[in-house]
C-alpha cells in the first residue's frame, strides 16, 4: 500500500489529529483558555472553533480546576472532552480534579462511569520561557493510579497518538514537547488508527548493541543525535522512545537491556522520584543478571526550573547524555573515581 505523506510541523500534526477526532465523534469537545478565537497561545487549535463551532471548541474562563472539573462532568454525560492546559506549570490548580476525580471515578463507580478525558499539556523547557512555563510535571501523574500519560516525540506520533488518547476510555495526560512544536516531519494523514502501534507501546528509535538509551518527548531528538555522535566513536547505542509514560513499557526496555546489558535514562524533569527512578528500579528487578553496570540517569536537577539564561545548565543535552553513556560503559567520565 502506498501512502502519500504530508510535510508539516509537530504543532500542525496535533491540530490535524484534533480535527480528525472532532470529525469522527460528535462527543469530542475541546475546552481551554484561548483555544477558540485565538487558536491557542501555540496555535495548536488554530481554525478549529471556526470550523466546529463554539460549543465544540470552547473558550473557557481562566480556571484550570474548572476546565478539568467540568470536563469530568461532561464525561458523566458520555462526552470525550479534550482539555488544554496552557502551560505545564499551570496544571497544579487542576491537580485535585485530575488525581482525586478523573483518576478515580472509573474505580469509584465500579466501572460504570467512564472518564475518556484527554488533558493536553505543552511541557518542558529549552525555549527561554518565564517561570512556570518550562516545567516537566509528569512524575506527579505517573504516581497516580487511574491516569495514563503519553508523550509523542515526532509529528507522525503526535497525529496518531492524540487521536488514540481521545479514543481511550481512561483519562490520558498528553504531554506535548513544546520546544519541538516547530519541528517538521512527514505525516501520513490517512494513517489507520487500528493498525498503528498501541498507545502504551515504546518504540526502538535506533537499534544498537552497546547500551540502551531511553528518552521521551523533547529529548528523543537529542538522544538520537547523541547516538549518532557516539557512533562516530564506535559506540552503538540503542535509542528507545518510550512514548507511553504510564504505563511504562517495561517489556520493550527490558528486552533491549537484555541485549545491551546497560541502561541510560534521560529526561528534563528533576530526578528524585522521577520516571528515571521507576524505570531504573523496574529494569533492575527484571534484568539484574543481565546488567553490566547500574542504570544511569541523566536528568534535570532537583531545583525549581531556572531562569532562561540558566536553563542550559539544567537541561540534559547531547554532551551530558554522552557523559552518562561513558559512565554506563565504564569509560572515563565526569564522575570517574568518585566513590559515592
Amino acid at each position: 500500500m502506498t501512502t502519500a505523506t504530508t510535510h508539516m510541523t509537530f504543532g500542525q500534526a496535533i491540530n490535524a489529529g484534533l480535527r480528525r477526532a472532532l470529525e469522527r465523534d460528535p462527543k469530542v469537545l475541546l475546552i481551554g483558555e484561548d483555544i477558540g478565537t485565538l487558536g491557542g497561545v501555540f496555535r495548536i487549535t488554530d481554525g478549529l472553533q471556526k470550523d466546529f463551532g463554539a460549543h465544540r471548541v470552547v473558550d473557557s474562563p481562566l480556571a484550570e480546576s474548572a476546565i478539568v472539573g467540568t470536563a469530568v462532568g461532561m464525561c458523566f454525560r458520555g462526552f470525550r472532552p479534550v482539555c488544554e492546559i496552557q502551560f505545564d506549570g499551570f496544571i497544579y490548580p487542576a491537580f485535585d480534579q485530575l488525581v482525586s476525580q478523573a483518576a478515580k471515578l472509573h474505580f469509584r463507580s465500579r466501572g460504570r462511569v467512564r472518564m475518556p478525558l484527554t488533558v493536553r499539556v505543552p511541557f518542558g523547557g529549552g525555549f527561554g520561557g518565564a517561570e512556570h512555563h518550562s516545567e516537566s510535571p509528569e512524575a506527579y501523574f505517573l504516581h497516580t493510579p487511574g491516569l495514563r500519560a503519553v508523550s509523542p516525540s515526532n509529528p507522525q506520533d503526535a497525529f496518531v497518538m492524540v487521536q488514540q488518547a481521545i479514543a481511550c476510555d481512561d483519562p490520558v495526560l498528553f504531554f506535548e514537547p513544546k520546544r519541538r512544536y516547530h519541528v517538521k516531519g512527514e505525516v501520513d494523514l490517512e494513517a489507520d488508527l487500528a493498525a498503528a502501534p498501541p498507545l502504551e507501546q515504546a518504540r526502538i528509535e535506533r537499534p544498537g548493541r552497546d547500551a540502551t538509551l531511553v528518552a521521551y518527548g523533547p529529548l528523543v531528538p537529542t538522544a538520537r543525535e547523541a547516538a549518532e555522535a557516539a557512533a562516530d566513536e564506535g559506540i552503538s547505542l540503542e535509542v528507545i522512545d518510550l512514548r507511553s509514560l504510564s504505563p511504562l513499557d517495561f517489556g520493550t526496555v527490558a528486552a533491549s537491556v537484555r541485549r545491551t546489558g546497560r541502561l541510560v535514562i534521560t529526561h528534563e524533569a528533576s530526578q528524585t522520584g522521577g520516571l528515571g527512578a521507576e524505570l531504573a528500579a523496574g529494569i533492575t528487578e527484571r534484568c539484574f543478571y543481565y546488567l553490566e553496570h547500574a542504570p544511569v540517569r541523566v536528568t534535570g536537577f532537583d531545583i525549581p526550573y531556572p531562569p532562561a539564561r540558566m536553563e542550559q545548565h539544567h537541561l540534559p543535552d547531547l554532551d551530558r547524555i554522552l557523559d552518562g553513556v561513558d559512565r554506563v560503559l565504564g569509560r572515563p567520565n565526569s564522575l570517574s573515581g568518585l566513590e559515592d
Binding site: 469537545l29 474548572a66 472539573g69 469530568v72 462532568g73 461532561m74 458523566f76 454525560r77 476525580q101
Partner: peptide, 15 residues
C-alpha cells in the same frame, strides 16, 4: 469538587 462536575454535566446537556 462535585459542583464543577455538575456544571460540566449541565454544559454538556445544554450543548
Amino acid at each position: 469538587a462535585q459542583t464543577l462536575h455538575a456544571t460540566g454535566y449541565a454544559m454538556a446537556a445544554k450543548f
